[in-house]
Design a protein around this nucleic acid. Structure first.
Length: 433
RNA sequence: GCCCCGGUAGUGUAGUGGCCUAUCAUGAAGCCCUGUCGAGGCUUCGACUUGGGUUCGAAUCCCAGCCGGGGCGCCA
């Protein structure tokens, strides 16, 4: 047995008894005849106190261990108020499981900061830091509640193909790949599949999966491989039904994040749970509002990054972090978006502090209208033959949204670089580790 | 796709034409030290992205390449 207790699990009941602990050698402080070794495990750190006169060979073994080596130690747990945890462990024996090479390419507890790039190059070591781990523990927690919430609302979890025959929506660039004798693409979203499933009677589906975008952007807010929560629901009255699910989902995730007190303390962040329902601002209202603030935007144009930021500031002053922008012009939304009159659509975005974290809409379910819209968007209906088939034999009214997980975490934890929010980021230049 | 910026020991940096056989910190190797917790003290080790050019002289100036960061567009 390599471990009887994790560091945090040792309490008064273990004092004066033997324990076995295991983990990484974070630091050693050798004072000559006494040495202190900090051992790190999943739950925290603890101190081993080694006396030379007790077992000289054991002392030598401990002080010669390079940092980040992996060991398992059996010893006596003693109460000691001078030590941070309130106890220390006096080792009887050590099992050296792995000796680390030196020097480390990245120190786990170095006194000098490393560049983000160096951290990513050595991500496995970077992930030994509690503050790096905290992000992924919170990510795990919010995704758990996303599953819980969606399932509670009768959504069925699905998985759609990521290798697809044609670019799904036009718009962003897709990665090409060789699929035996055919050309194929990596999915940029599950859009067309989740819509197709609305014609099956499953009614409510969601997917949490990977998506790929071949855009050559190089910013703090973009990844070429990212994850998203996608939701689609049938028999909706209009897009308002979809927005209600989305705001409840975001609220549940934000609330669960606020309960991750240990991780938030490590990150020195506080999370304020937003009030629902979120305000619905129409596109027209927003255009008018930001024009008053000297934005050059004209009706029909998409909001620029600067425009979004400006609106974020305006809403912040009113104490609002989350808001929907609704009733976008038809031409600024994808072909499958349900029109509302001639000029407008039933598409919406959910913004958080001036950043788009989700977009969705009521979709077109009438195959004739869908073909018209494809043509209007300069797309060839022939290319969407398989997709259109789903609409020919009974398709109910439906809608849904897509929700970027890394973008969400960025806003939740006020992280300035999206690459912090994914274990092994893929960006314009990074393909390893 | 357009535009801007950067590359000095394992890590983070100083250095803007000669004072650089390159600064400091951290690290690593070793020695001293029985209560450390950013331990302390001493010794040692270790670097100018590549190729051209300018110059008496280049880490420093110029050109090209390579590698990287960021802003915008587009989007999540």
């Amino acid at each position: 047995m390599y471990r009887s207790h994790y560091s945090k699990e040792i309490t008064k009941t273990e004092y004066n008894s033997k324990v076995i602990v295991a983990g990484w050698v974070e630091d050693t402080r050798n004072l000559g005849s006494i040495a202190f070794l900090i051992l790190r495990d999943k739950k925290g750190t603890l101190q081993l106190t080694i006396l030379k006169k007790k077992i000289p060979e054991l002392f030598e073994k401990f002080i010669s261990l390079p940092r980040e080596s992996v060991i398992s130690v059996k010893g006596l747990c003693k109460e000691n108020g001078k030590v941070r945890n309130g106890y220390e462990i006096l080792p009887d024996s050590v099992d050296i499981l792995s000796i680390s090479e030196t020097p480390l390419p990245l120190g786990v507890v170095d006194k000098v900061e490393a560049d983000f790039d160096t951290r990513l190059d050595n991500r496995i070591i970077d992930l030994r830091k509690p503050e790096t781990q905290a992000i992924f523990k919170i990510r795990n927690a919010v995704l758990a509640v996303a599953h819980e919430y969606l399932r509670s609302q009768s959504f069925l979890e699905i998985h759609t193909p990521k290798i697809i025959a044609s670019s799904s929506e036009g718009g962003t660039d897709v990665f090409k790949l060789q699929y035996f004798e055919k050309e194929a693409f990596l999915a940029q979203s599950p859009q067309l599949y989740k819509q197709g499933l609305m014609a099956t009677g499953l009614d409510r589906v969601y997917e949490i999966a990977w998506y790929f975008r071949a855009e050559e952007h190089n910013t703090r807010r973009h990844l070429n491989e990212s994850t998203a929560i996608d939701v689609e629901m049938a028999f909706i009255k209009d897009e308002e039904d979809v927005m209600r699910i989305l705001e409840n989902l975001v609220h549940a995730m934000w609330k669960r994040a606020s309960e991750c007190t240990e991780e938030l303390d490590i990150l020195k962040k506080t999370v304020t749970i937003p009030k629902i329902p979120f305000p619905r601002l129409t596109y027209d209202y927003v255009v008018n509002k930001i024009q008053q603030r000297q934005s050059p935007i004209q009706w029909g144009m998409d909001f620029s990054t600067e425009d979004e930021r400006l609106l974020g500031d305006i809403m912040k002053k009113e104490g609002i972090d989350f808001y929907f922008i609704t009733k976008y012009p038809l031409e600024s939304k994808p072909f499958y978006t349900m029109p509302s009159g001639d000029k407008y659509s039933r598409g919406f975005d959910l913004e958080c502090k001036g950043v788009e974290i989700s977009s969705g809409s009521q979709r077109i379910h009438d195959v004739t209208l869908l073909k018209e819209r494809l043509k209007a968007c300069n797309l060839n209906p022939q290319d969407f033959y398989a997709y259109l088939n789903a609409f020919r034999y009974g398709m109910p009214p439906h809608g849904g949204f897509g929700f970027g997980i890394e973008r969400f975490l960025m806003e939740l934890l006020e992280i300035s670089n999206i690459r912090e929010c994914i274990l092994f980021p893929r960006d314009r230049s990074r393909l390893t580790p």
